[in-house]
Design a protein around this nucleic acid. Structure first.
Lengths: 161, 161
DNA sequence: TTCTTTATTGATAACGGTTATCATTATCAA
DNA sequence: TTGATAATGATAACCGTTATCAATAAAGAA
């Protein structure tokens, strides 16, 4: 049932089996640049895989994350999204600008190189000082868009969300 | 009922009112260096404020965050915790190093000046590009502390928490 | 190929954190 | 003191994620 796949090699000699759902989910993520949520993946695959269960999506995303084939990002608002890992660690270097009024998220790439240098230096220093194995980082800026910056002293109203 | 408070000044001339729950929650966070969750705050205040509702804790934390009086951090596992903001100055400026094995949070000050310069440049650029009013930023590194790093080959991270 | 083992799946229920609802209470300017 | 209304708190609802468990299917063995 499962067709040959280049990533299947990662499973050989291990416990896991190469299955249709895993093929479908990894295939989808490898073909998009978006960071997708579990439900987005689930509904994207419904047409071609109507038998796929949401539980399997979660389990597969967890497996692929542990295999370092995909990358999980947790936004400041708690959203979890996944993306295919193209290669080097530095490729998935997304940072976010988030409006705390309406939760809109903007990707930015300003000062990407400078950030990378500083991140690397910081990681090395933290590893030495705390004896940590650094696996990931998260950099976000929070602010208010012009539509939201007038109402910060009120309990968050519905209208501006 | 509400007693005078230095932070009350932040409310004067605005819509919001200075209330007992807000006094209690901000007061608690100002007296601890811990990063607390909503439920931890709720149960910490239960003794002296048995009438306080969990809903109000969430609403107040949201308000105080938007007022930049406290800081919200979202861990990689989705946990949300809050800490008091000591001041606008760089005195107590720090970022977080989070162990994904045991959820422990370490504050660090490595490369503080270099980070601040880059952060300021990035903020200015983002403000110009997106017309945002930058209020805050969040820089976190995720990894495994030395104790948890020894257990990476165990199946269930829950057991070592 | 067929068989056997067991990893994987998917429907369902359950879980935990957060939010919406809404009647009541409390703040604060007048 | 009073009145308008912001804020509160009990409750239910919401939503993303997990646990459960019988059924299914992958992959090596025969």
């Amino acid at each position: 049932m499962p067709r040959p796949h280049k990533w299947q090699l990662r499973f050989q000699g291990h416990v896991s089996r190469w299955t249709g759902p895993r093929e479908a989910i990894l295939g989808l993520l490898s073909k998009t640049s978006k960071h997708m949520s579990a439900k987005e993946i689930y509904s994207s695959l419904y047409k071609k895989h109507p038998n796929l269960g949401l539980t399997t999506v979660y389990r597969t995303l967890d497996l692929l994350t542990r295999m370092s084939l995909i990358h999980k990002i947790t936004l400041g608002n708690g959203q979890r999204r996944f993306e295919f890992k193209k290669g080097e660690k530095t490729d998935h270097h997304h940072h976010h600008l988030i409006c705390t009024g309406c939760d809109k998220i903007f990707d930015y790439k300003e000062f990407e190189e400078e950030e990378l240098i500083l991140i690397k230096k910081t990681e090395e220093s933290l590893t030495r000082k705390f004896n940590f194995k650094i696996m990931d980082h998260n950099i976000e800026f929070y602010g208010l868009c012009d539509k939201c910056n007038l109402n910060i002293y009120k309990n968050k109203p519905k209208e501006i969300r």
